[in-house]
Structure formats: structure tokens, C-alpha cells
């Protein structure tokens, strides 16, 4: 890639709704991570990742902050809790939603050139 994919590129390509963190759409994306177990994300995801999940609990924002995740895509039509949206805006974490299921989202991201983070 000449240029790193940004969160804004992903939102446009996947037709996601940006429900929080609109000021951070220029965040660059390094790798992709897909998991619904937050303990697994804390252990496996890293800075710049775009994270695909169906979890909408407010803890997803803290996990994203902790790991330096660039954006969260909430897949499968799940609606983030109000508290989650609030915290995403506070922490500056782009929170994207889509009706597409996780599998479809991961496939689309892969097509955009985003690869999975290899655990070290």
C-alpha cells in the first residue's frame, strides 16, 4: 500500500455508520483483529488495529484505549449502549456500526489490504 488505510476509508468502503469518535477518522489502521472476548482482545490486539466485534458493552472502549486500537467496528447490527457511545467520544475512539456480520466485515477489510495481526 502506498498509503495506510484510515478509519474514514473503512467507514466509506463498508458503508458503516460512525456513531462516535467522528473527529478521529484520520486514524491510520495497521492490522485487523476480530474477537468477542475482551480478555482475548486485551492480550492479542495492538496499536492501530481495527477491531471487529459484536460486543457493545462500555468496556470495549476501555479495551480499545488500553491497546491503542484505531477503531471499533460493531458488526451484526448490534446497537452500542448509550454509555459506550459516551465513553467512545470521551476517549476519542471511532465507533462504527454495520448490519453486516463479523465474517463479512473481516472479508471486506481483507479485500482493502488489511491483514490480521500475528501474535508475537
Amino acid at each position: 500500500m502506498d498509503r495506510r488505510v484510515t478509519v474514514g476509508d473503512i467507514a466509506k468502503e463498508l458503508e458503516c455508520e460512525v456513531v462516535a469518535g467522528k473527529s478521529c477518522l484520520d486514524n491510520e489502521v495497521s492490522f485487523g483483529y476480530s474477537s468477542d472476548l475482551l480478555s482475548d482482545v486485551m492480550a492479542g490486539a495492538g496499536p492501530g488495529d481495527v477491531w471487529v466485534t459484536v460486543q457493545v458493552h462500555q468496556n470495549i472502549i476501555a479495551v480499545a484505549s488500553l491497546t491503542g486500537i484505531s477503531a471499533i467496528i460493531v458488526a451484526g447490527g448490534a446497537a452500542p449502549a448509550d454509555e459506550t457511545v459516551l465513553r467512545a467520544n470521551e476517549e476519542g475512539i471511532p465507533l462504527l456500526t454495520t448490519a453486516k456480520p463479523s465474517f463479512e466485515v473481516a472479508g471486506r477489510l481483507y479485500s482493502m489490504g488489511i491483514r490480521g495481526r500475528v501474535k508475537t
Binding site: 472476548l37 475482551l38 480478555s39 486485551m42 458493552h57 462500555q58 468496556n59 476501555a62 479495551v63 454509555e83
Partner: peptide, 11 residues
């Protein structure tokens, strides 16, 4: 709770 949501939510 810890496995699925990472930690005890402060709320």
C-alpha cells in the same frame, strides 16, 4: 465477566 468483558466494569 472477566473472560468476556475483560475486567469488572466500574459501574
Amino acid at each position: 465477566l472477566i473472560r468476556n468483558l475483560g475486567f469488572v466494569p466500574d459501574t
